[in-house]
Simulated scan of single mutants.
Amino acid sequence: MTLRLTAHTVTTETDDGAVLLSQRTGDYWQVNHTGAYALQCLLAGHTVEQVAEEFAARYDIAPAQAREDLTALTDQLRSSGLVEAD
């Protein structure tokens, strides 16, 4: 699964991570540094599995937990209409 921002979504980095804004609805999401890095990796074409493996090693967590967290993030962003998947 490859993620991309929807045509009406803009994102910007902040001191705390990043903000995604839907120019269509005015809704926005703020993600922390870890969420911003995960989103950056996913938007660059990495799979959830690849990012989960990196996060498991980097943050010393179980790979299954990393996958679950990343899937929850992507599901929420998709249901909010901020990203779409191929």
Rank of each mutant, 00 (worst) to 15 (best):
residue 40 Q to L: 10
residue 66 A to K: 13
residue 74 T to A: 11
residue 69 D to M: 14
residue 80 S to C: 05
residue 4 R to H: 15
residue 51 V to Y: 08
residue 38 A to E: 11
residue 11 T to I: 08
residue 72 A to W: 11
residue 25 T to H: 11
residue 65 Q to M: 11
residue 40 Q to R: 15
residue 76 Q to G: 14
residue 6 T to I: 00
residue 60 D to H: 13
residue 75 D to I: 04
residue 15 D to F: 07
residue 44 A to C: 00
residue 48 V to K: 09
residue 68 E to L: 11
residue 81 G to M: 11
residue 61 I to H: 00
residue 76 Q to Y: 08
residue 54 E to Q: 12
residue 80 S to V: 00
residue 57 A to K: 14
residue 63 P to A: 07
residue 7 A to M: 05
residue 79 S to K: 08
residue 61 I to Y: 00
residue 72 A to I: 10
residue 26 G to R: 15
residue 38 A to L: 05
residue 20 L to P: 10
residue 36 A to H: 07
residue 17 G to Q: 02
residue 65 Q to P: 01
residue 80 S to F: 05
residue 53 E to R: 13
residue 30 Q to F: 08
residue 8 H to F: 08
residue 47 T to L: 13
residue 36 A to F: 02
residue 86 D to Y: 14
residue 66 A to N: 12
residue 7 A to Y: 05
residue 59 Y to E: 05
residue 86 D to I: 04
residue 37 Y to N: 14
residue 19 V to E: 12
residue 4 R to M: 10
residue 26 G to I: 03
residue 64 A to P: 02
residue 72 A to L: 09
residue 34 T to L: 13
residue 51 V to E: 01
residue 34 T to I: 10
residue 18 A to L: 13
residue 60 D to A: 14
residue 2 T to W: 04
residue 72 A to S: 12
residue 60 D to C: 09
residue 43 L to K: 04
residue 45 G to Q: 03
residue 72 A to D: 07
residue 76 Q to M: 09
residue 58 R to G: 00
residue 27 D to P: 04
residue 63 P to G: 00
residue 73 L to C: 05
residue 23 Q to H: 08
residue 79 S to G: 06
residue 68 E to F: 13
residue 38 A to K: 00
residue 14 T to I: 04
residue 58 R to L: 05
residue 41 C to F: 04
residue 8 H to M: 00
residue 29 W to D: 05
residue 65 Q to T: 08
residue 45 G to E: 05
residue 35 G to V: 07
residue 41 C to Y: 06
residue 46 H to C: 05
residue 47 T to H: 03
residue 50 Q to T: 11
residue 30 Q to W: 06
residue 1 M to H: 15
residue 26 G to C: 03
residue 13 E to C: 03
residue 29 W to V: 09
residue 63 P to K: 07
residue 16 D to Y: 11
residue 63 P to L: 03
residue 70 L to C: 08
residue 59 Y to I: 05
residue 9 T to P: 03
residue 44 A to F: 06
residue 42 L to Q: 03
residue 76 Q to C: 09
residue 67 R to K: 11
residue 58 R to M: 01
residue 26 G to K: 02
residue 27 D to M: 12
residue 68 E to N: 13
residue 80 S to W: 06
residue 74 T to Y: 10
residue 26 G to P: 02
residue 51 V to C: 10
residue 22 S to L: 04
residue 61 I to N: 00
residue 60 D to M: 13
residue 30 Q to C: 11
residue 67 R to E: 15
residue 23 Q to D: 01
residue 21 L to T: 15
residue 31 V to S: 04
residue 74 T to Q: 02
residue 56 A to Q: 10
residue 4 R to I: 06
residue 52 A to V: 07
residue 2 T to F: 13
residue 69 D to C: 13
residue 29 W to M: 04
residue 42 L to M: 06
residue 22 S to R: 11
residue 15 D to C: 01
residue 70 L to I: 11
residue 57 A to M: 07
residue 51 V to K: 01
residue 78 R to F: 13
residue 10 V to M: 02
residue 15 D to P: 07
